[in-house]
Nucleic acid binder design. Structure first.
Length: 467
RNA sequence: GGCGCGGUGGCAGAGUGGUUAUGCAGCGGACUGCAACUCCGUGUACGCCGGUUCGAUUCCGACCCGCGCCUCCA
């Protein structure tokens, strides 16, 4: 009955102890919207979707905030090179992101603040930092955070402030006082998108928007802050420095970071140019297959993306769906109710309680499936139904098994042959079988197989799926 | 160079001081007209070298290899 979370700040698993009983305030760094989401984004999206689904299933009230950073140098650059209006570009990619996450079965966050809608909060926090002496206004109108003023700097990423200093070149020019200092506010250049501020027209630096938005949405101190693998430094380190200096209290209790998605052993990233967009992958694979792939390894470990791993994920999901095939829709009870029913759920919960160990949780599902198949073949209808309810219930906690089994199994693969064409051939094969013309029946089966359609004869008739 | 993570059976991927992970693939069997699905059985897996221990893949130390962050990136 104890949920443990790996806390990046502590470098160990810790018991989850909410600030307010049974309530979790969670903030996750979302996208900077200047391009389509890639698989790396999908991993963070799905990881924290599972976290929120599980926390809720465990009875916590979760206030899930995931921001959108819609003002940033990269957006400005992209808009310029596209010859596209700044706000048209961000609107376009925000819409695309919403489409992508919906298709992946990612539930929307409770709040989705945008930097451009929180400009007052941002400016107020920068002002506070200036007033408290943690920030200074440079000659050109930029405002910088003075890292040397924050003694705990580096705690999250394990860096020592003076070591960061030691590695510095003396090429900072005359704008920053210290090369470690980072921009809270950037003065606008000619005809750039900008907002009015006490320091002149400009825009926020990269990190301040998350400090301001998290405070606005969740308060100065909240439970969990999450993000991708490349965010501990500098982004989250800087958030801590800003928030704790401005608010005078601890910022976050638990820091969670997802692992990287790799391609050919290298990190998938925009700067390496080796990324696959979600929409690109979804043209070939069912969204739940992608989701399964992302959940089939622990959220903190690196995951390797390839056609082979996707294909394996598909095969595994097919096994789960095959078990549910032909079982009438069942209402899904809550996790607590399921826990009383069977040991599978208890093992599932134990796995998830241990820092969201989804691979282990999935292994429980497969053991359940074996028992389900056994019960079914022995005609134990009640048991079969109960196990199916559990399977669907546990799947739902992971955001899996949400499709109709027939639909899932018949989807994907090559669509050279339409469903209607297949049905026609199946009818012909049935006739051939009745006529004991097995040669003809096998011929049809092989023909379908060549086109990616696999048949399964059963007492109730012939089932099919796409391979 | 600094900080950190990891090397598990053909592949993917959990975990544990002594006992079956799990999935895919393979092999044998049952079922089947034959298949498929399903079920049963089946794999001398834990980078290398030392140490601790009755016993280590699991703890400790050294080493080798891979990766991440340290600059924009989820």
């Amino acid at each position: 009955m104890a949920l443990k979370i790996y806390n990046t700040l502590a470098r160990s698993k810790q018991l989850l102890q909410p600030i307010e009983p049974n309530k979790i305030r969670l903030y996750v760094c979302g996208m900077t919207v200047y391009d389509y989401c890639h698989l790396g984004h999908a991993r963070v999206l799905v990881a924290f979707d599972v976290v929120t689904r599980y926390l809720r299933a465990r009875g916590y009230e979760v206030d899930y905030v995931r921001n959108i950073t819609d003002v940033d140098d990269k957006i400005i650059d992209r808009a310029r090179s596209n010859g596209e209006a700044f706000f048209a570009l961000t609107a376009r990619f925000i819409a695309a992101m919403h489409e992508d996450e919906a298709r992946l079965g990612v539930l929307p966050p409770d709040q989705e603040p945008r930097a451009t809608a929180h400009m007052d909060d941002i400016i107020a926090m920068v002002q506070t930092l200036v007033d408290k002496g943690y920030a200074y206004v440079a000659a050109n109108g930029d405002v910088y955070y003075s890292v040397e003023k924050f003694s705990r700097y580096g705690a999250l990423s394990g860096k020592k402030p003076d070591e960061l200093l030691a590695g510095a070149r003396i090429e900072t020019g005359d704008i920053k006082r210290d090369h470690r200092d980072f921009a809270l506010w950037k003065a606008a250049r000619e005809d750039e998108v900008h907002w009015r501020s006490p320091w002149g027209p400009g825009r926020p630096g990269w990190h301040i928007e998350c400090s301001a938005m998290s405070k606005s949405c969740l308060g100065a101190h909240f439970d969990i802050h999450g993000g991708g693998p490349d965010l501990p430094f500098p982004h989250h380190e800087n958030e801590i420095a800003q928030s704790e200096a401005a608010n005078g209290c601890q910022f976050v209790n638990y820091w969670m970071h997802a692992g990287a998605v790799r391609v050919d052993g290298e990190k998938m990233s925009k700067s390496l140019g080796n990324f696959f967009t979600i929409r690109e992958i979804l043209t070939e694979y069912h969204p739940e297959v992608v989701r399964y792939l992302l959940i089939s390894s622990h959220y903190r470990s690196a995951i390797n993306y390839s056609l082979e791993t996707l294909q394996t994920a598909r095969g595994a999901l097919q096994r789960l769906y095959t078990a549910l095939r032909g079982i009438d829709a069942v209402e899904i009870p809550g996790l607590a109710a399921l826990e009383e029913e069977n040991g599978f759920t208890r093992r599932f919960v134990a796995a998830m309680d241990d820092d969201f160990n989804t691979p282990l949780a999935l292994s429980v599902l497969f053991e359940l499936v074996r028992e389900l198949n056994l019960a079914r073949s022995e005609g134990e209808e009640l048991k079969t139904r109960d196990l199916a309810r559990t399977l669907k219930g546990l799947g739902a906690v992971l955001g899996l098994l949400q499709q109709d089994p027939e639909d899932f199994l018949k989807a994907g693969g090559s669509d050279a042959l339409g469903d209607a064409d297949i049905e026609v051939l199946l009818a012909q094969r049935e006739q051939a079988k009745r006529d004991k013309d097995y040669q003809r029946a096998d011929e049809i089966r092989n023909q379908l197989k060549d086109q990616g359609v696999l048949l399964e004869d059963s007492r109730e008739g012939t089932l099919w799926k796409r391979s």
